[in-house]
């Protein structure tokens, strides 16, 4: 029987700890055939499981150009993530996916890209950044504004440095006021404010905004003031999911199943339909 709920078994190939409660994990398919045939689009997500604890939904935060493995990133907040936290290299976890629509990277070609992220929302942006850098000629200027509550809450910090070394890439780091350390060289302030100060041409750019609801809420007006079109401003919704395949009803928001029609939406779409997210 074809079982759409049955996961692939994955071996943990590497673990990186980013903050006291955030880790990213690299997985390899245990079945070599599956490893060879697996493909996904950046922006898609997976359902990851620790056997005995359950499943949880995370973006696949690696680039789709990286063959042979996938990565995901999580904060330790519940039963499943605690079990994943305790898993070590060589252990087995489950993966179902890829699910969802992903970013329309082809449609973004030729445009400037603006990535605005807050806190743990870096991973779903990271996959798009790497993809764009690996296809550098396809995209215009890239601006990354990434903020967190404190310096210690920033994730993938080493990669921020790496991205900044690429041509036509501007990386702006910021922390909330009071979240800085004495040696902090980045900006101090919230993402929307810092972004507005940075004065990035937004008129014809694609913007990807992911973060806590309050950050998104305050960033959208800034983008509008800067001339960004809502049809060019994207986000990735994080509705709670169980099945990932449009059955269980949990991610249902207004007229859509976020797991199938999302998780990536433009703000033009989000404004047109009544939704709870």
């Amino acid at each position: 029987m074809d079982n759409i709920y049955q996961p692939d078994l994955m071996e943990i190939a590497g673990v990186r700890q980013h903050t006291p409660d955030v880790k990213s994990v690299k997985l390899r398919f245990q079945d070599p055939n599956r490893a060879g045939s697996f493909d996904f689009r950046v922006g898609q997500f997976g359902i990851f499981s620790a056997f005995g604890a359950g499943e949880a939904t995370f973006n696949i935060c690696s680039s789709s150009n990286w063959k042979g493995s996938i990565e995901f990133c999580f904060r330790k907040v519940g039963r499943v993530t605690e079990a994943l936290w305790d898993a070590e290299e060589g252990d087995t976890v489950g993966f179902r996916g890829p699910y969802g629509n992903g970013y329309p990277m082809e449609a973004w070609r030729g445009k400037d890209l603006i990535f605005l992220g807050g806190g743990i929302a870096m991973p779903p942006i990271r996959c798009a950044i790497w993809y764009a850098l690996e296809n550098r000629a396809d995209y215009g200027d890239i601006t990354i504004v990434y903020g967190a509550r404190t310096v210690g809450d920033l994730v993938f910090v080493d990669e921020l440095d790496e991205w900044a070394r690429h041509p036509r890439v501007r990386v702006i780091r910021c922390v909330d006021p009071g979240g800085q350390t004495p040696d902090w060289t980045g900006e101090i302030g919230f993402v929307p404010t810092v972004f507005e100060r940075a004065d990035v041409p937004a008129k014809n750019a694609i913007a990807l905004v992911i973060g806590p609801p309050i950050m998104i809420k305050n960033t959208i007006p800034v983008l509008e003031r800067m001339g960004g079109a809502m049809s060019n401003v994207y986000t990735s919704l994080e509705n709670r999911m169980k099945c990932g395949v449009g059955k269980c009803g949990r991610c249902n928001a207004g007229p859509v199943y976020v797991c199938k029609e999302g998780p990536v939406f433009t703000f033009e779409e989000l404004r047109a339909i009544p939704m709870d997210y």
Binding site: Y5, S49, F51, G52, A53, G54, E55, K242, C243, K247, C248, G249, R250
Partner: peptide, 20 residues
């Protein structure tokens, strides 16, 4: 609508769905 849960001990168990 349904929920998906793991039930078992450290050695074996089932992943099941329950109405939600």
């Amino acid at each position: 609508c349904f929920d998906m849960v793991d039930e078992g001990n450290g050695r074996e168990g089932v992943r099941a769905r329950n109405w939600d």
